[in-house]
Design a protein around this nucleic acid. Structure first.
Lengths: 113, 113
DNA sequence: GAATTACGCAACCAAATGGTTGCTTTACTT
DNA sequence: AAGTAAAGCAACCATTTGGTTGCGTAATTC
């Protein structure tokens, strides 16, 4: 069955997205772009202390994780947010959390017996 | 106000936890431990190809993010899962996702006008 | 068409990460 | 008390990461 392989690549994807969010600068970029307004690179790097190129690298990490998409418009690169990868993570975390809650309730009823 | 500072350190914490999950090996460790059963290091490294020391390092990364706690019992170190940091991430992702949905609905009603 | 703006590309660098090996220490077993 | 099992500690290594600077290129503006 390709279930195992499916699951492996899913874990790899999750790890990729988690890793992309595992940085303060990138988190702040996500938080900006998640207001729905696409922005150019210079605009995104304006209120940062980092260089434009540093921001560019971070944006490409986010893009590689699918969190953000880039479209070229004229001479600027516009980045826009995509919510789906984050939604996937949310579901994943919810599943872990649910499993945990069930474990707790099983433990509780065991103690009560 | 310490609101900004609070938010910063929160973002730092989030980034820490995200980064801790941004690795396949650590994700698999979390997935094992999230069944509620605490395990020793050797037990956790038994079905991995990696060395015990490599697994130990990963476990300490998880511990540093608060995802896992270590208690010494006799000659073994027992690691147990803590769901709270993941719950925090889940809430954070939910807030981003909610903001996004509201943005979409605003956009939709704008187009409909 | 000349200046400016926005960006890409590449080299380079320091520090962090992910992994190994070797050895010591601590606790359990017999 | 000797042997073994579990883990800690430290050094070492290759690769990745996060950042910079310098320069080239494409698109706008004047």
């Amino acid at each position: 069955m390709s279930n195992k392989r499916r699951k492996q690549s899913t874990n790899k994807r999750h790890a990729l997205v988690f890793a992309a969010l595992g940085d303060q600068t990138r988190l702040s970029l996500v938080s900006k772009l998640s207001d729905g307004q696409p922005r150019s690179i210079t605009l995104l790097s304006d209120d940062h202390k980092l260089t434009r190129q540093a921001i560019t690298k971070h944006l490409h990490v986010l893009e590689n994780a699918g969190i953000v998409q880039c479209i070229r418009s004229g001479r600027e690169s516009i980045f826009q947010f995509d919510v789906q990868p984050l939604d996937d993570l949310k579901d994943y975390l919810a599943s872990v959390s649910d499993q945990w809650d069930q474990t707790l309730s099983r433990l509780k009823s065991f103690v009560e017996d």
